[in-house]
Write a protein that binds this DNA or RNA. Structure first.
Length: 142
DNA sequence: AGTTTGACTAATG
DNA sequence: GCATTAGCCAAAC
């Protein structure tokens, strides 16, 4: 019996079920953040289709064997700070961000108003009847 | 099998 | 602004 895949699983050859799907989508979203911009754990999770799952993003970046080549340094926390963790990671993240032109203020914070990458909203599924009747409307004063 | 632990966050004081 | 708390959920003990 194949065991259930986890984000730590070095093989990831099982069929695509939920954890793996989320994992890949999250990595995909991070890849879309262009140089010179940042996003946050929560926003990445939401854009990937998993609202309120910010911790998944952190876990994946920490553990995933598939995280090679993803611009992990462009993910900061909701306050614009580089999340703490042991080792030289945080310092390196700051260096990488600065190298891309992201300014970090005296309090160690990235100004999200300036550097936050806004993911393109996925078009929401519409009811078929709404599709054909799409048009612009003008609201009239009451 | 229950508890603790996080690259998290929003709300509250 | 910080600190605390509750919610979060997969991994690790």
């Amino acid at each position: 019996m194949p065991r259930k895949p986890t984000i730590n699983d070095p093989e990831f050859d099982a069929d695509p079920d939920e954890p793996r799907e989320a994992h890949l989508k999250i990595l995909d979203m991070i890849r879309r953040i262009p140089p010179g911009y940042v996003s946050t754990y929560g926003r990445v999770a939401e854009a990937a289709g998993y609202p309120k799952r910010a911790r998944w993003v952190g876990q994946i970046l920490r553990n995933s064997p598939l995280a090679d080549g993803v611009p992990w340094h462009r993910v900061v926390n909701a306050a614009g700070r580089i999340s703490t963790r042991g080792g030289s990671g945080p310092r390196r993240q700051g260096v990488l961000l600065k190298a891309e032109g992201v300014r970090i203020d005296g309090n160690g914070r990235v100004d999200l108003d300036e550097y936050l990458w806004r993911f393109r909203m996925k078009r929401q599924a519409r009811h078929p009847s709404a599709e054909s009747g799409r048009r612009s409307v003008v609201l009239r004063a009451p």
